[in-house]
Amino acid sequence: MDTTTSTTLDEVKQLMRMAVGDEKHDVSAHSTLDILWVLYDRVLRYVPDKPEAKERDRFLLSKGHGPLALYAILAAKGFFPTTELERFGTWEGILGGHPDRQQVPGIEISTGSLGHGLPMAVGVALALRAKKGEQRVFVLIGDGECNEGSIWEAVMLAGQLNLANLTCILVNNHSSLYNFSDLETKFSAFHWQTTNVDGRNHEQLYQALSMTATTQPHVIIADIAR
């Protein structure tokens, strides 16, 4: 499947600047930018003009806050016209402060309320396993989102079910009210494979996102200095 384009990260940043009106989520959008860039530029398998192609890898933005980085990358990669960024948050456009799967090509799930996407990703991973599919499931959560109880329900479940086709990217931008200094041990205790990376280091991100599946779900804890 085609994952190569000539787009650059600088072009994505320019696209992000075209959209105005979501300043409250600026930190959130910029926290995820490098991670999503590496994911869509070098890791995920997808076909931009067939966003529902069965053989695609799935990416679910559980942390629906600050989707601007994702919008800009999807536009840069050809899922929809880049001019949509100019219509962010308007009646005429399809892009808003939280993404709507029925509006935006390439958006797998509609999110915004925290704690929903990881359980849904577990369901997607189970469904793909039941169909003997080779596709991988990636889901992105935030450390603030880890205050939600449903996240830990799903963490417990995925470890118990040995969901090796599931990779969770935990963006730790230190926005949680509680200090999760030892996130790695928490996931390990629930039988997850864990990797710590610098959330701005593209090579570290690429290595972690490309890791071959073992028998367990994999969490990549991506630290973002705040």
Binding site: P119, A121, V122, G123, L126, A127, S150, E153, A154
Partner: peptide, 12 residues
């Protein structure tokens, strides 16, 4: 809560 989320994943 996760039961409903997982069910939605199957539906997807």
């Amino acid at each position: 809560q996760s039961m409903i989320g997982v069910a939605a994943g199957f539906a997807l």
